[in-house]
Amino acid sequence: MSTGAKRAALGKGLEALLPSKKPAAEPVAPPPPAPSVTVIEGKPKEIPVEAIERNPYQTRTRFDETALAELSASIAELGVAQPILVRSLPGGKFQLIAGERRWLASQRAGKTTVPAIIKEVSNEQAMEITIVENLQRADLNPMEQAKAYQRLSSEFGLTQEQMAKRTGKDRASVANFLRLLKLPESVQARVEVGEISFGHARSLLALEDSQLIEKAALKVVQMGMSVRATETFVQNQLNPERKLGKVETVEEPPIDPNVKEAQTKLQRTLGLKVRIEDKNGKGRVVIEYANVDDFDRLLEALA
Rank of each mutant, 00 (worst) to 15 (best):
G110H: 04
G157F: 05
F94L: 11
G224R: 07
A9G: 13
L181I: 06
E277Q: 10
I40Y: 11
M1S: 13
E261P: 06
K260P: 09
F94P: 08
V121K: 03
K43S: 09
P31T: 13
K282E: 11
A303R: 15
I213M: 14
K182L: 10
K273P: 02
A25C: 10
E26L: 10
T269N: 07
D64H: 02
T3I: 12
M143K: 01
V132C: 07
N280Q: 15
E65V: 00
L181R: 12
T232P: 07
A164W: 03
A146E: 13
A189F: 03
P254I: 11
E192G: 05
E65F: 03
L238S: 03
E252H: 06
E288L: 00
M127L: 09
K169A: 15
I52S: 01
T113V: 13
A201Q: 12
G224I: 02
E161V: 14
A98L: 06
E231D: 05
L18Q: 13
E46H: 10
T159G: 09
V285G: 02
A109I: 00
E155T: 05
V28E: 13
P44E: 14
Y289S: 04
R166K: 14
R268P: 05
L180T: 13
P90I: 10
L272N: 10
K243W: 04
N291R: 02
N291A: 09
L78I: 06
E277S: 12
Q222R: 09
E161Q: 11
R62K: 07
T61C: 06
S106M: 00
K169V: 10
D278E: 15
S210L: 00
A164R: 07
I196Q: 10
K219S: 12
L207R: 09
V121W: 05
G283A: 00
R242P: 12
F156A: 12
E53W: 06
L238I: 04
E252Y: 07
A24S: 14
R190V: 04
K246L: 04
L178P: 05
S2V: 08
S210K: 13
R171N: 06
I129G: 07
L244W: 06
W103R: 04
K21L: 15
N291Y: 00
E161W: 10
E208I: 13
D278I: 01
D139G: 01
P115S: 09
L85E: 06
P32C: 04
G110K: 01
L205A: 04
L180K: 05
A16N: 03
S36R: 09
A98W: 00
V292F: 01
A126Y: 08
L14P: 08
V132S: 12
R190W: 07
K45Q: 15
A229N: 09
V114K: 03
V221N: 08
G13K: 03
E195M: 07
V191G: 09
E26N: 11
L17D: 11
A148E: 13
E70G: 00
K165E: 15
V227G: 05
K279Y: 14
S210T: 02
A189V: 08
N280E: 14
F63E: 02
E208S: 04
G91L: 01
S106N: 00
T113A: 02
R7M: 15
N239K: 00
P27G: 08
L272T: 10
